[in-house]
Nucleic acid binder design. Structure first.
Lengths: 207, 207
DNA sequence: CAACATACTGAACAGATGTTCAATGCGCAA
DNA sequence: TTGCGCATTGAACATCTGTTCAGTATGTTG
């Protein structure tokens, strides 16, 4: 009897919570809001998830699963890793642009996850940072990335630059007039990033 | 009769709201929380600011004023702008590290401002972006920054990389083991940024 | 058919929250 | 002193919110 799609009411509730939590923040969303969005009674939300906190945990777990699948799919993809291309540039940002639909609730939720200070976000960042380290090492072994004395800081720098595009993407779209999470916007952004990472941003007056 | 410092109760309330809003988000902070933090009664909060929304607006306005002063001071400072040094690198991030105390409530609040999607954050970003554009132009005229076909995207890229360090600074501190908003952490971070912006991050195999 | 498990509803409740308001204290001018 | 204006309090109120629960429907198993 679900109106929208052929998904269980439980999944419907979880999806609504994911979207609303991302848009307004969990504290500004009531159980009744979620129930109304999912077209069910408030009681059913608690019936399936025990409590609002339980629902938050379930949404967190679901998002982590989605990310895991996304990364796993990307790693298995022969075109993505271990090729001759510089991988940190077309890292998370391009992965997002290719895998995540236009109006996906994931980016807003990711924003909250990384900036709310909760342990789930910390775990996620840590996980991605480890991945960035190994990716950079692989690129270094392939001769694509310069040697640097501060390996950790360099990996963090490149990764954070990448993440920033996702976190600030609305502002960037406002500023440069193109949404960097669309295909063409990503090309424009990647062009600049590639240029800087290849040639730097400053002139060398001494060379 | 204020216990903490020699500030008016009104300012005390505003400061507490700023700190608590930044830490937990406005929706998770009650009027009673703020009153307790400021050592006053809940009624006084509403007496001074009309409503909770009024207090939020007042905090926003206060933060905007602080940023204006910070930027105005930096622009007037002969050592900061219009020198021969590359300015976008030691832009907002270093400005923050030098002007903002260790446990300042500003960074957490700035995070919420930029990522909550409200118009104040949008204004702030826009404002800083315009500043970045003029700064980059000045550097270009001075011969410090390379010519680039996509001026807007380049300025946005450099600025966003800088902002990211502030937004993600807890995560970065976790990952690399040094807080990039301290003096030594900033030096480490700036070293990497300077290196990349001067020499790039990739090797050129064709040169 | 009967018994049961499960999905689901909607009313009800206790506590929290934003807000109002009458009352109090206090400094200051007349 | 008297009176006025402002800061401040704390109780009270209406509403909202998370949660509980008794009850209904439906499909499944014996």
């Amino acid at each position: 009897m679900t109106s929208e799609r052929d998904v269980t009411a439980r999944a419907q509730i979880r999806n609504c919570a994911l979207r609303l939590f991302g848009e307004r923040g969990p504290d500004a969303v009531t159980v009744r809001d979620i129930a109304a969005c999912a077209g069910v009674s408030p009681g059913l939300v608690l019936h399936h998830f025990g409590s609002k906190q339980g629902l938050r945990d379930a949404v967190d777990a679901h998002v982590m699963t989605l990310f895991d699948e996304m990364l796993a799919g990307a790693i298995e993809d022969p075109d993505a890793f271990a090729s001759g291309e510089p991988q940190v540039v077309k890292g998370f940002a391009e992965l997002f642009a290719s895998q995540v639909p236009q109006d996906s609730p994931i980016p807003p939720y990711l924003r909250r996850l990384l900036l709310s200070g909760d342990p789930v976000g910390r775990t996620l960042f840590r996980q991605w940072f480890e991945l960035s380290l190994t990716a950079m090492d692989a690129m270094g072994a392939g001769g694509n990335v310069r040697f640097t004395p501060d390996r950790d800081a360099m990996a963090a720098f490149l990764m954070v630059n990448d993440l920033a595009m996702i976190l600030l993407h609305d502002h960037i779209a406002d500023a440069i007039g193109t949404d960097p999470l669309t295909q063409e916007g990503m090309q424009r952004w990647a062009a600049v990033a590639f240029d800087v990472y290849l040639n730097g941003a400053f002139t060398k007056e001494d060379s």
